[in-house]
């Protein structure tokens, strides 16, 4: 696979290393000449100095034969534009972008960015998991708009304890996929009984996650 990475941010740098290691052909475009030199010194001629939102630069980078473009600069607007040019001017089949302002995510999805990596969201999720005692965790956003994978911890006094999954009235767009019992993954079959300290892995819609949490625990999210 031939991949263009726009922006030699930490994400762009590590992505390029990972893609190279797995046998892909990679080029990294960055406006900062010093960053390009550092990348060249470490990884060879995969660095290209230039503006990744400049059509001529993308053309010189081989956009016409590219399978995927990743935009990983720190500016959401630059990432969006790089992905839109990739599709509009070069018909690059897949585009991906990192995002810092969570509120821009719906726009990126509407405008056809195939994969949106919300770095702020990831950081918040990790803090939630590692630092706070919050019992509803966002694991990831799915490609379907407003749809996410969540993990819900079942406390001892939860309403659902002792009940079968089939007897728990789920919100319309929420589906339990897996249940972690004593660190063992279990398929969420209808007759599976929910116990205290179980971790529920479910697909839900963003606007429904608090209802799902309340349904399973009896407590408002």
């Amino acid at each position: 696979m031939y991949v263009i990475i726009v922006g030699c941010s930490p994400a762009g740098y590590h992505l390029s290393k990972g893609l190279l290691a797995s046998g892909n052909e990679v080029i990294v475009i960055d406006k900062n000449r010093h960053k390009c030199q550092l990348l060249y010194d470490e990884l060879g001629s995969i660095a290209m100095h230039g503006d990744g939102t400049d059509k001529k630069v993308l053309e010189a980078a081989g956009a016409a034969r590219t399978d995927m473009l990743f935009a990983t600069t720190r500016a959401d607007q630059t990432n969006l534009i790089a992905c839109q040019i990739a599709k509009q001017a070069f018909n690059i089949p897949r585009t991906a972008a990192t995002l810092t302002d969570t509120k821009n995510e719906p726009l990126f999805q509407i405008l056809g960015v195939d994969l949106v990596v919300n770095s702020t969201h990831s950081i918040v999720t990790q803090f939630e998991a590692g630092v706070t005692d919050k019992r509803l965790l966002h694991l990831t956003d799915l490609e379907i708009p407003n749809t996410e994978l969540v993990q819900i911890y079942i406390p001892e006094d939860a309403w659902s304890v002792g009940k079968r999954l089939i007897d728990i009235p789920m919100p319309d767009h929420s589906f339990v996929s897996l249940v972690i019992k004593h660190e063992i993954l279990t398929i969420a079959s209808p007759n599976l009984i929910i116990n205290a300290h179980d971790e529920i892995i479910a697909i839900t819609r963003s606007e429904e996650e608090h209802i799902l949490y309340e349904t399973l625990t009896g407590v408002s999210a």
Partner: peptide
């Protein structure tokens, strides 16, 4: 760039 994003 900012004009483009906000306009969209």
């Amino acid at each position: 760039h900012t004009n483009v994003m906000l306009a969209q």
